[in-house]
Every structure is written in C-alpha cells, then in structure tokens.
Computed example of a mutant assay.
Amino acid sequence: MPEMRKPKFDVALSFASEDRPYVQKVAAVLKDAGISVFYDDYEQVALWGKDLYTHLDKVYRQESQYCVLFISKYYAEKVWTNHERRSAQARAIRENREYVLPARFDETPIDGLPDTVGYLDISNMAPKEFAGLVREKVGPKFSEPGFPRRVDRLWAAMNIPKGDKEGRERVREIAYSFYNALRKMTPAERSAVVGVFLFGCAAELPDGVHISLDLLSRMLQQPKDELLDNLAAVRSLNVKVKVRESVLEVPHGELAPEDKDLLLSYWSKSAPWDNDATTVVVNAVRCASDHFCMDHGVKVVAGLDFSRLAKSGLGLLAKDLPDDDAD
C-alpha cells in the first residue's frame, strides 16, 4: 500500500463570500491555536497564478484532514463552492469516513449532501465557540519542539507594550533561559516543574507558585517521594523549591492525609537581578499550553514545545541558535 501522506492542512474552509465576516473570525481563532487552516485570504501568494480549478480540487480532495462547509442560501448559489463541495465529497466517499463537516447558517438544501450527514447549527453560535468545536474535532496539535524568536502572546499576557523593547527583550530572555533549563532536565523532572507552574496557585508571585504535594501527585500520577526527588534534583538549574506545612486548614476531627505545601520559584542567569523571573515563567508555561487540556498542556511544555508563545502558534524556532545564545 502507498504510504499515507500527512495532510498539508488540518482543515479547509469552504464558504460563500457573503459569509466571509463569520468565517474570517473562525479562521483567525484556528490559526492562533496552531491549527493549519486553508482560508483563501491566508493563501493569496500561493494561489497567485495557479489554475484555481485544479488547485482547489487538490486542496479539498487531497490536502486537508477535514473540510468544513459553511452552508447558507448563498453557498448553494455559487459555482466555486459547489466545485469545492464536490471535491470534498469525492474524498469522503473514497475514504468512507467523516471528512466533510457541514455547518449550517440556515436550512438551505445542498445538492449531493445527504440529510443523514450530521451537521452543526451555527445560526446562533459565536465564531469563537464554533472554532473551539473544530479544534476539538481536529484533536491536540503538537508542534515541532522549540522556542520561537518572537513571543508575541507572552508579551501580550504580561502587558508589555510594543514600544518597550527593553522590557520585551528581558521577558524573552528569561523565558528562553527557562526553556534551556528544561532541556537539561530528565522527562520526569520537566513534568514535575511544569506541573507546579501549570497547576499551582500564583497568588504568592513574584515569590513563587505554591501547590499541595498531594494534589500535584494526583495530577501528574507520580508518587510523592519521586516528585520531591525530581524537584530537589533541579536546584542547580535555577529552580528553587521550599517544602512547607500545608496551608489548608482542616476542621477539628476531619480525617485528612498528611500533606505538604510546595513553593517553587525560578531565577534566570540572563537577569539574576530580576525578582520577577518566576512571573515570566508562569506566564510562559501557561501561554504555551493554553490551547490544551491541562494533561496535554504538561506534555506539550515538558516536550519543549514553546511554539505557541508566538502569535501564530508557529513562528521561527530558536532551538538551533548557537550555544553562545544559551545560558
């Protein structure tokens, strides 16, 4: 059997121009989430000079994992949307799987689209909500591990304005130094450190993030002793952990397990004078993982994938920078 090629696009969007305002918002959310989406405005250069009839047939028939049809009275009238639909349906018939994903603005019947095909009613659904459902259908996206040269989403999360070049560079250097520290850790050590920053309470920042040892153990499915060993082992990588008595008050007579409270902080060689490095790292971890459930979020960041710090969720990676640029 021929080897199955990875689709060029996670999802292709087929729509009438009258429905563009809605579809444009969906495409923007998907792109920001790191979903590879075929949306004509994003492909102007690629489409320039192409035989569109042949090229679009290839996109909708071969190059996408899913195809969303935005069905409306306008969709039914267009020549190009019917061409895209026929290409997509040919793929669905050939593979005998759920490839075509109809989304209806109204009940307009579409030739060749059986009533038995499940659809979503988006007549009263916000674009962001619908994009979330598309992301769920596509499934978790794991980008190539690495660190982007621009960290637009991290700057935005920390309210660093465009004009503050020094502040932006400081934030990026701290986040990159943490990425480099993770590279030197074992997978179990990474999971422990990332788990604290992701699941922990940030109320004590900039001093650190705290979390119940019992909760962390349950969230990561790691024994408490192993967690403590893994966290102690990374002290040389600028990660500091204090073990305190549990901050949770237990009413008299209530049965409760013995627990400890962990306070974790990070300092950066790039800015050893900076008392806010832990705040930067917490924002970096949460921005890098915020398109996933928490379990997948730990795997993404522990897998050294910080690509979603870039605005597009992709971006040029800095993983191959010379060693001089690393801590």
Rank of each mutant, 00 (worst) to 15 (best):
D10E: 12
V11D: 06
R20S: 11
Q24F: 02
V26T: 06
K31P: 01
G34Y: 06
V37F: 07
Y53D: 03
T54I: 09
H55D: 13
H55M: 01
L56K: 00
D57E: 14
E63A: 00
S72P: 06
E84P: 05
Q89V: 03
E95D: 15
E95A: 13
R97A: 13
R97I: 02
V100Y: 05
V100L: 03
P114L: 07
G118N: 09
Y119M: 06
L120T: 14
K128D: 14
E129V: 15
A131G: 01
E136T: 10
F142C: 04
F142N: 05
G146S: 03
G146A: 11
F147W: 00
P148F: 04
A157S: 14
P161K: 14
G163S: 11
K165F: 04
R168L: 00
R172S: 10
A181E: 09
P187E: 03
E189Y: 01
E189G: 08
E189N: 03
S191P: 00
V194K: 04
L198H: 04
S212W: 06
S212K: 05
L213V: 01
D214W: 13
L216K: 04
L216S: 02
L227Q: 09
L231M: 10
L231R: 08
S236K: 12
L237R: 14
K240H: 15
K242T: 12
K242F: 12
V243Y: 00
R244D: 15
E245V: 12
S246P: 02
V247T: 12
P251F: 05
G253W: 05
E254V: 05
L255V: 13
L255Q: 06
W267S: 14
K269N: 15
A271F: 14
P272F: 03
W273A: 14
D274A: 11
D276W: 07
T278M: 12
V282R: 07
R286Q: 10
S289G: 02
H291G: 01
C293S: 14
M294S: 13
V298T: 07
A302R: 07
G303P: 02
S307W: 12
A310V: 06
L314I: 04
G315I: 03
L321H: 02
